[in-house]
Design a binder for these strands. Structure first.
Lengths: 167, 167
DNA sequence: GCTGAAATCGCCTAACG
DNA sequence: CGTTAGGCGATTTCAGC
């Protein structure tokens, strides 16, 4: 288990920073029960080791004018590594595509897209995505509403597993 | 357009904080070209108005022992508002479910799930998700690899639209 | 090794122009 | 929006466990 190097304080730090990434270090230290200097050292170490990849403001897309959110299920003609990588490279370049996951099963890729409106999404769909080389078919589903959108990891489960590992 | 109340400095602030949510206010002010106090006032206002919903550390799920990521496509028996809400409430309670979006088309919901391993995911799938009231069918797809996973909004598009609006 | 205490430096954040 | 200024947090240094 790769998280074995983390003790309970480290996990608490990750949980707190996931919940509020802009918390001051002294507040963080207070919450996890140590003083500020070692707390800051732990945060730096967690960043170094890759447990923390970065910090992001959570921006409301709708408020910024992105009224449309779409999941696009993409099937390719060829699934050779070369062609898979080529499609991924393309997806990375499209700003409207926020996530690109390669899947098992009949669908090759699922893309999460945002767009200001249906018209501009349709243009992206027909002129870029469907028109891209090696794309066999694209099925899209509009997001009607979003009941849950939590970034990251459920720390309740992390703690359960850590407790079980001590057994 | 709801983002009309934002000027270019506001949009720059949002873009910078989306890229690095832990940036100090003076650094942020320097980057957007104003002094620190008005910059902080703008940030507070953007939080108040709901453009910024929060700040989160971006935690590497795999490093923390969540080896498995799955998209689950769920179809319900009844799509009455009461039953839709009931399913959403359930999804919100399951820690392994990180996102729950209601879709148009044949699929009613798409869930993004994380899990430590296939065994525990299978247990969640059979004992909780498929067994939940009103669930007609669940199709799951494992994430083989992730080529792109960017939170939030493409600010290049925001700027294009703002420029066009001035046109 | 780790933590914690003290001191310095820099930032945050009011109040005012 | 900028400047000033006081208080607090961040970060290094050093001592102790």
């Amino acid at each position: 288990m790769t998280a074995a190097r983390l003790d309970e304080i480290d996990r608490k730090i990750l949980a707190e920073l996931q919940a509020d990434g802009r918390m001051t270090n002294v507040e963080l230290a207070r919450r996890v029960g140590i003083s500020a200097p070692p707390c800051l050292r732990r945060v730096r170490a967690l960043e170094e080791m890759g447990y923390i990849r970065g910090y992001h403001a959570d921006i409301d897309a709708r408020e910024l004018g992105f009224e449309v959110q779409v999941f696009a299920m993409v099937r390719l003609v060829s699934q050779s590594e070369r062609d898979l990588s080529a499609f991924e490279a393309l997806a990375c370049e499209w700003p409207l595509v926020r996530e690109c996951h390669m899947l098992n099963g009949e669908i090759d890729f699922i893309l999460k897209c945002v767009s200001p409106d249906l018209t501009s999404f349709q243009r992206f769909l027909t002129e870029q995505l469907t028109a891209a080389p090696n794309v066999a078919s694209v099925k899209t589903s509009l997001v009607i509403r979003c009941a849950k959108d939590e970034p990251g990891v459920p720390f309740s489960v992390v703690e359960e597993r850590a407790a079980a590992a001590l057994g």
